[in-house]
Write a protein that binds this DNA or RNA. Structure first.
Lengths: 156, 156
DNA sequence: TTGAATCTTGATAAAAAAGTCAAGATTAAT
DNA sequence: ATTAATCTTGACTTTTTTATCAAGATTCAA
């Protein structure tokens, strides 16, 4: 169970652009590349995905660059992650045999699918109200939303 | 955010073997291959991982095969998934700069890491008390553990 | 209108994951 | 002992994901 590089980099680029929303400054691919340590080509590729997903707007030309297509508190992280990396469990998978539980109980596949669905629900529950705005503040702000102690990295 | 094929197949193989635990029957690679529709070679590769992780025991020879190394209610799914596919977020990553929140707040990387950690915690919370035993029953049994309606596949 | 800076796109290359293969080692039955 | 059935291991091939490249299109300023 892993996040893809696209999810990691995509979210970082979006946060980076989001930090400049309130000063109405757009960011260029070279700028983001330097800030995030991702190659320009890769930044371009990732921003294309975010743009086509409706989260960014771009302007060409000498004074071009990328800006958010909506205020940070209107951009839902759950939607962003879906565009960047899909979902763990897609309901449509088992729609073909909804209610046919006699089949599902005999296949280990459906036991596993059920577990994936439960995990997906747990993740959705975390993300459902989370917006880009929540990721623009300090780390502490984010943790406090979920009652997680900031410095609880086990030992040390 | 995806589960790997190894996680999916590994869990299915483990559940399959677990279903025979109470009748004390071992399963062979060819049997599991047929049951789960996975090639024999791939089953062998996956079972090796589970065996080295301590969840399975194997016996060679003409009457050989695989059995659980412990009763299903003693095998924690969280441990199985860790061996099969690692974790979303590893605490050791940020241990090097615990408390240095002034750095973390300036890098988008740490905003994202914090989100990964929160999601990992949510998943752990689902898995912490889940054992293989819970996956051996019917689909309904599993859903009832988490208050999920069995037939809630949105529309249809 | 020329040039420089930018985004855009499809094709290509590199890396990682998944799956396959072949040869070997062990065991039990005959 | 011999044979047949099994697990074991490392190497190999294929597929998917990730990252790079090159050529093009757009915009602004001088």
């Amino acid at each position: 169970m892993k996040f893809s590089a696209q999810e990691e980099y995509g979210l970082r680029c979006l946060i980076r652009i989001g930090k400049y929303f309130k000063v109405e400054k757009s960011l260029t691919i070279p700028e983001i590349s330097v800030y995030e340590g991702i190659s320009q080509h890769n930044v371009g590729k990732i921003l294309r995905i975010l743009r086509m997903g409706g989260f960014l707007e771009s302007e060409r030309g000498q004074s071009g660059g990328y800006t958010l297509s909506a205020p940070p508190d209107k951009i839902k992280i759950i939607d962003v992650l879906f565009v960047l990396g899909g979902r763990l469990y897609d309901d449509s998978f088992c729609q073909s045999h909804t209610g046919m539980n006699d089949i599902c109980t005999n296949t280990t596949e459906c036991s596993v699918r059920s577990l994936w669905k439960i995990i997906q629900d747990a993740v959705d529950n975390v993300l459902v109200n989370l917006t880009l705005q929540d990721l623009l503040g300090t780390e502490d702000n984010l943790f406090s939303l979920f009652d997680v102690a900031p410095g609880n990295n086990s030992s040390n």
